[in-house]
Every structure is written in C-alpha cells, then in structure tokens.
C-alpha cells in the first residue's frame, strides 16, 4: 500500500463554455500522505473548488477531464463506476463545502440531515441522533440536542458552517476535504475549528486536504502547502519552507497581502494587483508573467519547468533556475 491516501497525477479539468474550453486545471500533481494535512492556497478562481469536485467526482455537468489519474486508497477514482464512487463518499472521504448558507437542505431539519447521512450504520434512530448531538457539541454548538429539530435558516452562517464541519467529521473519513471551511467564522472560532481538525486528525488518523485563502490558518494547520495559480500548481513544500522562503513571486505576493498570524485574522481576501489570465485562450510562457515583478525575457514564451529548489520544496519559476 502506498504511503499516500490521495495521489493526483497530471490532472486536467476543462469546462465547456460558449467561448471554448475553459482550462480550469492543467496537469496538476498532488499528494496527500497518510495522516498528514495538506493545504492548498490561491486566490479565488484558481481552480481550488474544481480540484475538490473532481476528487469526489461531483463536477458540474459541463466539465470534462481530458487527462489525469486520481488515486485514492490505491484505486483510480476516474475508473470507478458510480456505485463504487458513491460507496466512498461520506464514508472514506467527506467534504466541507464552501458557502455554508447553501450547503444544507433548507426544508429538512439539521437532525434529519445528520441522521440520514449515517444510513450505512446499523444503529437505531436514537443512537444516530446521539451521535449527531455529540458531533454538534464538538464543533461548539450549544444545547445541541434541542437544536436537532431546527432548520438551517434558523442558524447563522457561522453556525451552518460548523454544522457542515460536524457532518463531515461524523463520517470519520480517511480523507477529509475542506473547502475554505473557516471563512464564515470569527477568529476565535476559527482557532477552535483548527484545533478540532487537528484533534480529529490525530484521534482517528485521517488525512486532510485543506483549502483556504487565509495563509495564517494554513501555516498553523498544515504540514505541506501547495500554492495554486490559474489552474496550475506553482509552488509546493513544507509549510515552513513555503512561508519562510517563498520561491515563487506569487507566493511572495500572497504573503505580503496577508501577513497576519492566525490570531489576528485579516477579514479581507488577499488582493494582488492584476488579474488571472483568460483560461480559454492561455498565454504562452509563464502563467504568472503579467503580474510578476521579476519578469524576464524567457518568461514570455518558455514555460518554466517544475524544479526542486531545496529538499522537498518545488517551484515552477525561471528565477530560481538561474
């Protein structure tokens, strides 16, 4: 058995649009070692959510995967039939989605939704409810037993996000995927949730793929960090390496925008001057050249190679290759 829970190899995902194929992910490689926490950072529109959707194979109807492998627990998910895939979802892998206000069903109670997803467990209704209550308590919802009968709209956005996290944890998956799970939370709660995720990871030994645009959280929580830009991975390494010795100009800029530590969370998204290039008509050369402060002649038409900058630290930038 390989030491990685998840291995994504050379994955590309395109969306069919009126203007042509939008290349949301291009040749992405990503490993999540067993028992580790891997963070993915990048501005919005970089393809983070697309990456998640392709891992659980719930991509939008207009998406297609021209190439790639997604190996999870030694099976290529892209080869599995729907039944086998469904068997993994909410069981071996679970997801906390972005945008908490729309992830829960508005006409079913929280209790109902949390017990329904335990359908694989051969337990009584009361037993399933007890488990749901326990999970809600763990994510810091007060008086959880009485709240099982409530509907999502009776909770605040932050509360709904915590419920989503409780649901994902309840599954005790081998891989937990979290798409910006702390965005709707305040700083104190964010710290709590981070600790909760860490606890869970040590207790049940799951691996976590954690997506955030908040670098402080990534630094606190993750062992490895992957930096995504415009559908490509531009830098990757241990959290220490990436944050202390950023090798890619994009990472540098992200850090400049959001230097705050975990305790003092900056509310705003990182904003870097310039825009992500058109993903339908991709520019030649380096994908970041139009926003880069160190642009060289070579950047214009030569795609930088994926190179080792030190030990486990990789980057695709011409600057490090000279």
């Amino acid at each position: 058995m390989s030491s990685d829970v998840l291995t994504v190899t050379d994955l590309s995902v395109h969306y069919r649009t009126d203007h042509g194929a939008l290349q949301a992910l291009r040749h992405v490689n990503l490993d999540v070692p067993r028992g580790s926490i891997v963070g993915v950072v990048g501005e919005s529109g970089c393809g983070k959510s697309t990456l998640i959707a392709s891992i659980i194979r719930l991509l939008a109807g207009n998406a297609f995967i021209p190439n790639g492998r997604i190996e999870f627990e030694s099976r290529n998910l892209l080869d599995l039939d729907e039944a086998a895939m469904r068997d993994l979802r909410g069981n071996r892998m679970s997801v906390v989605f972005q945008d908490p206000m729309s992830t829960l069903n508005p006409v079913l109670t929280i209790g109902r939704q949390m017990t329904d997803i335990q359908y694989r467990r051969n337990a009584s209704r009361a037993d399933k409810q007890r488990r749901a209550v326990e999970m809600l308590a763990r994510v810091g919802i007060s008086d959880p037993a009485s709240r099982l009968g409530q509907f999502p709209h009776e909770f605040s956005g932050g509360m709904q996000q915590r419920i989503s996290i409780a649901m994902a944890l309840q599954a005790e998956p081998a891989l937990l995927i979290a798409d910006e799970p702390t965005t709707a939370l305040d700083a104190t709660l964010e710290v709590q949730i981070i600790h909760l995720l860490k606890d869970l990871q040590t207790n049940i030994g799951c691996s976590i793929l954690f997506i955030s645009h908040h670098l402080g959280v990534i630094a606190e929580l993750c062992d490895y960090v992957v930096v995504m830009y415009a559908g490509e991975i531009v830098e990757e390494g241990t959290a220490r390496d990436v944050f202390h010795r950023p090798a890619h100009p994009y990472t540098e800029k992200l850090l400049q925008c959001d230097p705050a530590g975990i305790a003092a969370k900056s509310r705003s998204l990182p904003t870097i001057p310039g825009e992500i290039p058109d993903l339908v008509e991709l520019p030649a050369g380096c994908i970041f050249k139009n926003r880069c402060g160190y642009v060289m002649e070579r950047c214009d038409n030569v795609v930088p190679a994926w190179t080792e900058s030190a030990g486990t630290h990789f980057v695709s930038c011409h600057r490090t290759q000279t």
Binding site: L58, L104, D116, I117
Partner: peptide, 24 residues
C-alpha cells in the same frame, strides 16, 4: 448546492431525488 452535499455523503440517488429535492 445542498443537493451536491447530499450526493457528497453518498446518499442513494432515490433519496436525493424523492426526499431531498422533490419536497422543494
């Protein structure tokens, strides 16, 4: 999005359609 959530927990399609979607 909530239908995607129901699917992400592997709920059978029958449940997703007739219990989670139809009521809405």
């Amino acid at each position: 999005n909530h239908i995607r959530t129901a699917r992400a927990y592997g709920l059978p399609e029958r449940v997703v359609v007739y219990r989670y979607a139809l009521k809405l």
